[in-house]
Design a protein around this nucleic acid. Structure first.
Lengths: 218, 218
DNA sequence: CCAACAGTGAGAATAGCGTTCTCCGCAGAT
DNA sequence: ATCTGCGGAGAACGCTATTCTCACTGTTGG
């Protein structure tokens, strides 16, 4: 044991100070990678970029990339997490204008649906696109990324339950998970699901489906 | 023009006969690839096999593979289509024991859910696993593969509508699409969605969700 | 000012995988 | 018996992710 534990505080502080600048630059570099990747994704409307592209775009080096990220999947995860988190905030803001719990839920579902569609020209063309891949390869991390949205929906559902507007036998959190999956994935595949002559599924339909189900209420 | 159009019938027949055997062998070879791939998928519980593995397993050659398939995606598509089609039949059979339209739907939803889960040890561990990837790269073909299931659900929903057990404002076909997406994708991600302490989502919950939605009926 | 040094860029090297190509033997038709 | 074309074996190619090498630069401690 080289008494590393009880180093005098002044020394720790000195080290920290000397490290601070390095850490700062490192964060900036990470951010440049993230920005570059986001830009490329937005441009191409797909997540099928190469690490090289990101490196060139960010004017950094491959080595740097792999020093900052464990691999491409970590970059994607970071972007995914960020996008979902920001979307959750956006949805929360939009829903705040509604006072009725059910109306809030409707806003949330509709907006989430719109945000999850592939490429309604730019803005946030992330989401369910590569989520499926990650879902298979890194389920745990995806769950973490989903957390903000689940939390938001759970919150809204709980409020609805307290206002007695929710079916009494349901647990908000579990419904939240199902709603999120449903909305995001239907949005993702709405393009593929439609017939040539059929319109794509709309946000309203999804809302109706989630809220009411399909069985006629007696 | 080398008068290929008005060849005498006998010659055509001769050609056909000579081709017949070749076609037969070709089909057998295709089947061997399919079987090998299915076996590998079943064993590994994933679709991340290499073309090489399939080739070796089927004791054929790479060249043969690419003569029969346009690429790996076509093999996957074929398996996917086959699995969905067989599942549709299986569901139809299981549902046939129910006489009430809604009960039939419940059986269908529950069974589809179980069939769509990743790896409930062997049987049919296909489905939504790689569907997402294909959904992005070959949406049209995926739609074709989905057709049998959509048709089945549409049929059941239509029967329910005729028995006045369906909300009157809904179009069976569109609901069928949403139900299918919902059930299959929730099943797929049920593993990832659960908390360590939370149970995974169950077939019953999914059915309740699809059938009833979450809003309390006045 | 100098010398060690940690961090970084440039880009060559490696490795896995899908896909293509080349060569060659063999079975069936003429 | 020869010709034709399918199909096997596997080398070769191209693209990516990932790792490795090396030289350079700015910082730090003396």
């Amino acid at each position: 044991m080289t008494s590393a534990n009880e180093e005098p505080a002044w020394k720790q502080r000195a080290v920290e100070r000397s490290i601070k600048t390095a850490k700062l630059r490192a964060e900036q570099r990470v951010q440049r990678f993230l920005d570059a990747a986001q830009a490329i994704i937005t441009e191409k409307g797909t997540t099928e970029f190469t690490v090289q592209e990101v490196v060139e775009r960010s004017k950094q080096s491959l080595r740097s990339f792999y020093l900052q990220f464990d691999g491409k999947h970590e970059l994607l995860l970071a972007l995914f997490e960020d996008a979902l988190s920001k979307s959750a905030e956006q949805i929360r803001a939009a829903a705040a204008t509604e006072s009725d719990p059910v109306a809030r839920l409707q806003v949330a579902v509709s907006l989430l649906f719109e945000l999850s569609r592939p490429d309604p020209n730019a803005k946030r063309p992330l989401f369910s696109d590569f989520a499926p891949q990650l879902l298979i390869t890194h389920p745990t991390e995806v769950r973490v990324a989903h957390a903000p949205l689940i939390a938001l929906l759970t919150e809204f559902l709980t409020e609805a339950a307290e206002a007695d507007e929710l079916r009494a036998d349901l647990q908000p959190r579990r419904v939240a998970a199902m709603v999120m999956q449903t909305v995001m994935f239907i949005a993702q595949s709405s393009v593929a699901t439609e017939d040539p002559d059929n319109h794509p599924i709309t946000a309203d339909e999804v809302w109706e489906f989630c809220a009411q189900g399909f069985v006629r209420q007696s």
